[in-house]
Design a protein around this nucleic acid. Sequence first.
DNA 1: CTGTTAGCGCCTTCAG
DNA 2: CTGAAGGCGCTAACAG
Lengths: 333, 333
Amino acid sequence: MHKKRVSIRDLAKVLGVTPSTISRALNGHESISVSRRDQIVQLAKELGYRPNQIAKSMVSNKTFTIGLLLPEFTHNYFNNILAGIESVSFQKGYQLFICTSDELKEKEEKSCMAFLNTRVDGVLAAVGNDSDDLSHFETVIEDGTPLVLLDRICEDLNTSYVVTDDFQGSLDAVQYLVQTGCKQILHIKGPEYISTSFNRYLGYVEGLKKNNIPLEENLILMGEDEQFEKKLNQIFDEFEVDGIFAFSDYYAYDAIKVLQKRGIGIPDEVSVIGYADEPIAQYISPQLSTVKQPAFEIGKHAAEILFKMIEEKNTTIMSKQLETTLVIRESTR
Amino acid sequence: MHKKRVSIRDLAKVLGVTPSTISRALNGHESISVSRRDQIVQLAKELGYRPNQIAKSMVSNKTFTIGLLLPEFTHNYFNNILAGIESVSFQKGYQLFICTSDELKEKEEKSCMAFLNTRVDGVLAAVGNDSDDLSHFETVIEDGTPLVLLDRICEDLNTSYVVTDDFQGSLDAVQYLVQTGCKQILHIKGPEYISTSFNRYLGYVEGLKKNNIPLEENLILMGEDEQFEKKLNQIFDEFEVDGIFAFSDYYAYDAIKVLQKRGIGIPDEVSVIGYADEPIAQYISPQLSTVKQPAFEIGKHAAEILFKMIEEKNTTIMSKQLETTLVIRESTR
DNA sequence: CTGTTAGCGCCTTCAG
DNA sequence: CTGAAGGCGCTAACAG
């Protein structure tokens, strides 16, 4: 299949020297005459020599590869994280070994094992919401492979992570809602098992508390609920909701559709705030107010931490929490 | 850094056998007693043995890895391609080595070299629109690494590709426009240098021709034009445009915004058709009619072809062209 | 400055 | 059924 590849031995034979000399020349070692080096480099180019990274890794025990595990790429959020990671890994000369988990634990496990087997130098991962059991990540840690968690924390995992301050972001959103006159605020909650859902919920609760608004259990709706529309309608039948804070822009949009069907004016009668600033936030009408996460920075910081761990063999925990920004558009008063 | 990893030699020592025996047991070879095999497999598990894929690749000259080069992930289209590829690569037990080119030739070249150096078993790539010079892909081909092109064709490259029938898709769109009464159809054209832009343009031209509508140069606008809004307005001042066919959903949306500012009714006065069926098509208002590409299938087919090339050492060209579907929503009559 | 030797972890003959 | 020997491509340590 492959054209026979040229190895340093081939080069050595042509020039009548030993492979070691070739290796030294190609890797910019000290002790080698300039003329010889040039000669070798030149020949390598001519013959289309391509260093076998596999063999190099074999001896150096280093692959210049980092494993990246993300749930999916349909949300712009993860694309931006990827972009942030790439911006630093590319510059460092590392390749990305990307796996998507589809939020499935099974794929997560397989990917982690694949990372270990291929001896990646480090792992970046956003744990899926299907994962209550985290033993595969523990395996990574025990193996001694640096691991940095993205976006979603797992308290049980003793490793660095980079997240945004979901609590504060949500609190900001609710505060804004209250300041602009909302009295009854509905929360559309995210999937269970992921820390972000819970933290945003907590921010919501805190927001109410700070403003002496009693927490009403019936004003909390799961975004993934199969009877979402029906339940939302029931809530509107029963309560005088004038504000909605949703776990995601998509949930917010789902709610907006229901409200529009009911002929409820946004933002006149109900203010709506989403989360994440996905592209659709700008395309829907009214344009959606939302909590913007610094996705690119999350990726960037996570990668930087990981490289610090890899290159400096630094094992201290270096977690980081980034701030969100409230973006006000047309869906709020 | 790493906990010392256990190798087959370690296992061998424990059991007082040779590494060969361990290797045979772990790889399900014939000639080995069942009891011994079980014993070895058991021990491997206990000691957390993890086969060194690097070492395996070294001897087998196979990495079970395929290189994937995509321009970016901000368009849902490429995500779906990725999903299609993954659906087959995952099942085949291959890992994906993903690089994004950001449409930059420099990154494309680097990635190709990285693919070759890490000895991926095959490459899937959508060439960026920045690439007039394709020598890096030729290098891949010459190296003997199977290559399948995605989405965008390069006539000069003698290798398999999987694309959609952009010409037909565009023709369908224009035909629909005409059939629903449009007489003056504007085309918003895509970036130069990529085959899809040209093919969609050709489909537009053919659509006019089939309906005896003269081609009017002034009714063609570049989507990336910096003075897009101004020029579009000029066109509407001068011509009685009643239909728009855009290279992408995003361009279509840009146009819709301009029309709405002008108070032009969609679809009453002007019908609009986009391309790709990006998520925003469903979120904007009016919901956008568009040409849907079978992105998932593109990825799937491309991967299948690649695996055929890899596993059967098949070198014949097996290109494929997939059909599009016209999705009619609210932006057309 | 360059050659020799040994070995990274694994697999594949070839013997026995 | 199992052991011994050699090698995948490259680098590092030690001589010279």
